[in-house]
Design a protein around this nucleic acid. Structure first.
Lengths: 144, 144
DNA sequence: GGAAATGTTTACGTTGACGTCAAGGTTAGC
DNA sequence: GCTAACCTTGACGTCAACGTAAACATTTCC
């Protein structure tokens, strides 16, 4: 019952099977468990993860390696939470946390800029649309 | 006095000289006039155009050929305006105008979707930031 | 239980968007 | 008028992100 095969994951995520295997190969997607015969069996979480990162990739304009770094970053936070008791209080941990925080802040600023850029393009497009509309209206008037 | 050379255009637009020549080669950027000796002499408008299309490219995630199509589309509108008297009233013109209008509407809808996607990523990022912040605060408290 | 569908790895191919020489011609400043 | 700094056109190189084909194993379904 449990475990989606790659073709199903492809359909649900919108990626190709090749791409999914490729993402695993470069370490972007965690290797799923396999069947006795060696067939990949994915969980619902894998699909969600794929959807999330493809969206982030598109939105931020990330390359795969940038995406990689970013995932690593948020994994760092998870790991830190988990290893809390063992490694607490070291300066290394503090520096890591600060790096995560600063990088995320940076990305958030970039997103603000992106919003502004979208608005610029949007204005141009609306301008274009209105001019087309006006021309069409003139058109109607003349041929009536 | 008049005419920017390619190096200046590169600096002002943020593109490389290679890229600027490449854009001309594939018909994305109109060929500027040349000096007697064959050197490209750009105008301020060329720079503005480059800035505008690189922004649109980034925002929309367009490939160069998609960008091409899009420029052609808005040129269509300009051309129509100019050839207004010669070609007015033909059905071909009307169809062209309608195509421009519909394509632009489509792009505007895509931009709305993009905004929503940005917000999704933004939420994730803010979540991440807050968790990093919280961890840092715990850190401070323990080491004091 | 046998075929058809789907899976696996390996490895070479492709495409877009430029980078990077090389081999010269042009311009600006002194 | 000469040199350094910039320009020109080829043309080959590169890199990411997969596509695609081959050769074989595994599942599913009747």
């Amino acid at each position: 019952m449990n475990g989606l095969k790659i073709d199903e994951v492809a359909k649900q995520s919108g990626l190709t099977k090749r791409t999914i295997r490729y993402y695993e190969q470069i370490g972007l997607l965690s290797s799923p468990p396999r069947s006795e015969g060696g067939i990949r069996l994915y969980s619902k979480e894998h699909v969600e993860f794929l959807k999330k990162i493809t969206n982030a990739k598109e939105v931020m304009g990330f390359s795969l390696s940038e995406l990689q770094e970013f995932i690593t970053l948020s994994d760092t936070l998870e790991a830190q939470r988990h290893d809390y008791r063992q490694f607490k209080g070291t300066n290394q941990q503090k520096e890591k946390l600060e790096k995560v925080y600063m990088t995320v802040e940076e990305q958030l600023k970039l997103l603000e800029q992106k919003k502004k850029n979208i608005i610029k393009v949007e204005e141009d497009l609306m301008n274009l649309r209105d001019r087309a509309k006006a021309a069409l209206i003139r058109f109607e008037q003349e041929n009536s």
